[in-house]
Amino acid sequence: MLTPVSVLAVIPARFGSTRFPGKPLALLRSVPIIVWVHRAVKRAKLVDRVLVATDNTDIANEIRKQGGLAYLTSPHCSCGTIRVVEAVKLFYEREPQDWNRLSVIVNVQGDEPAVNPEHIDIAIESLLKDKDETNLQVSTLATPIQSIEEWSNPNHVKVVCNSKHEAMYFSRSPIPYKDANIAFPHPFYLRHVGIYAFRKSFLEMMPQLSTSPLEALERLEQLTWLYHQKKILVNVVQHAWRGIDRPEDLIFLEKHLPIQRNQE
């Protein structure tokens, strides 16, 4: 039985996506994407509180209309996790009585309307099981790649792990190399899932890390953490719906997502 801790989930939601402007408010079966994500995260058993961190008042108002908590953050945040860091600072200012209890912050991407609440709990639990805060400060998820199209798609981030299930590298390129005899799914070919669980201490020091040149090349913030020798534990789940990067991803979920998913 794990010792009870206070876990805060933050959903970063930027309005001005380059590939899909206004994405958080786009409708999936008549419900805004950001509302789908918020409802799912609230169902995670290990999450005590959920907040949306956004640069847009319409997004914030949509969440507040649902009875949720939303903080307005800077439109100049360089990535989703920096927006999470800013939201956590606001949380500290507005909820100082909860700050000392807070030990884990979960980042669930605002474009993952079909995120599984159980997967959020897996990321949290795997972090809490390691009592040495200096050893492991970040956990995330991945799922087996199902096709060569998924493997070769730069919008699907791939991750390669070591024998301890720690990330060695993330890339938009098709990695690792695929021999003609390899068939999907295969345990070495994994797609990253957009959930991170952080220890509070990691988020407090993360803005001090200099940006890795690899982050700039791949446009993946987690490469900076690896560059600075921070361990990222990767939990493999057998199935995870893909997030929405482009309008065609929204069309895919409209067609294939089970009708009852995240509707309450």
Rank of each mutant, 00 (worst) to 15 (best):
N162F: 06
I195Y: 05
N262A: 15
T211V: 15
K45V: 12
P96L: 06
K129I: 06
V106Q: 05
T224M: 12
F184G: 07
V138P: 00
M1Y: 10
L209N: 02
V37M: 11
S139G: 10
L209H: 00
S171N: 05
E254M: 09
L2Q: 13
K23Q: 10
Q263I: 15
V85F: 05
I34E: 03
G243P: 11
R191P: 01
V237D: 05
A142E: 02
Q208M: 11
A197E: 00
T81Q: 11
T134W: 07
S78Q: 14
Y71N: 00
K164M: 05
M206V: 03
P117G: 11
G68M: 07
A167L: 04
E62R: 13
V41Y: 03
V50G: 05
A142W: 00
D48T: 08
L253A: 06
L8S: 02
E264C: 11
Q146P: 12
V85H: 03
P144W: 06
S126E: 13
I122F: 11
I195A: 03
V37G: 07
N262P: 12
L128A: 04
P12R: 01
I148F: 15
F91Y: 15
L90Q: 12
H256W: 07
L250D: 09
T57Y: 13
K23H: 06
P176Q: 09
A70F: 11
H76S: 14
P176M: 04
A70L: 10
G110S: 07
I182R: 07
R246C: 13
Q66K: 09
T57D: 06
F15G: 04
G16S: 13
R261L: 15
I244D: 01
N262S: 14
I120W: 09
F188D: 13
V160H: 04
Y169H: 09
C79L: 06
M1N: 10
F170L: 09
E166K: 00
A53K: 00
F188Q: 14
F170M: 07
I122L: 11
R199W: 09
N155Q: 06
V7Q: 06
L8D: 01
L136W: 02
E149M: 07
K23L: 15
V35H: 12
K200E: 01
I34D: 07
L214C: 02
M1P: 13
L2G: 09
Q260L: 13
A13Q: 04
V193C: 12
I259P: 01
K178E: 09
V52L: 10
E254S: 13
I148Q: 15
V88N: 04
H38A: 12
I145L: 10
V85T: 03
N153T: 10
Q137A: 14
R19E: 12
Q208L: 12
